[in-house]
Write a protein that binds this DNA or RNA. Sequence first.
DNA 1: CCCATATCTATAGTCGATACAGGTTTAGAC
DNA 2: GTCTAAACCTGTATCGACTATAGATATGGG
Lengths: 143, 143
Amino acid sequence: MLSIGKLSGATGVKVPTIRYYEQIGLLPRAGRSTGNQRLYDRPAVERLAFIRHARELGFSLEDIRELLALADDPEKPCAAADLIAGRQLAAVNARLRRLEALRDELQRMLAQCTSGRIADCRVIEVLGNHALCAHDHAEAAGA
Amino acid sequence: MLSIGKLSGATGVKVPTIRYYEQIGLLPRAGRSTGNQRLYDRPAVERLAFIRHARELGFSLEDIRELLALADDPEKPCAAADLIAGRQLAAVNARLRRLEALRDELQRMLAQCTSGRIADCRVIEVLGNHALCAHDHAEAAGA
DNA sequence: CCCATATCTATAGTCGATACAGGTTTAGAC
DNA sequence: GTCTAAACCTGTATCGACTATAGATATGGG
Ligand SMILES: [Zn+2]
Ligand SMILES: [Zn+2]
Ligand SMILES: [Zn+2]
Ligand SMILES: [Zn+2]
């Protein structure tokens, strides 16, 4: 049985994050030592490693919740899991296209700036006037 | 002079967002009508359009705060602005490389799945075992 | 036994908004 | 002039996925 610190070391997930995952019900409530400290067994390590890997691949915690539920049911068809991964791939592709447009605009404005006074700065000028852009790059940038 | 609703319509920035920008000091406190409603002039429209465009290009509000301060000082050298844009370009490039790796992994796992039972699902299998991945794709996925 | 480290809980903060509640002002129709 | 619906006001709470802090308790090595 591992302490939360050892589990953290074994998976690369920070201690407060593990507690957070338990709090939101992504990890089951851990067993406790006589002194009330969390103890983890091997399946817990695998479950957390699964979560970490899915996070690295960009899945949301809600998606991961569903994927974990599916993983616990080996006889079911995997169409639901493939659907979630397909959605994720589509989201990644959308973000890629958007970021490529942003990269092009940023490169363009930097290349056109002669690095003189602010009054002549192409960066400031383009930011103030989207008509100077080559792409549309609409929508919020967060994604 | 425009009401906040007209300003919103003119710039595409939602009304609560405009109030939020004022609250955090990104927009100066707007003048008020006799009935205490915000009123905006033409420079306010331009300032908000600048903010919106910079957000679309992925700049953080803190970066935008600096860029606005620079834009207000036309005689200064523009190196600081170019530096911020360069940082943003580097961040976008980093996110692009990362997303490309994610896209490859997601495509691979989906292509290898025969869509049978969960027990044989390649998606679930790869998520549980990073050794099956071709790339490293480390770091958090948020960015 | 002592002490440094690890762990515990609960709460607040991050970013960039968005949503809601409950009240006031305004603009247009009559 | 009056009515009503829309827009506006403030303040607070919420989202996702953590991260940080404070103050208390437990554990493990010397
Ligand atoms: Zn410049
Ligand atoms: Zn543009
Ligand atoms: Zn599958
Ligand atoms: Zn992997």
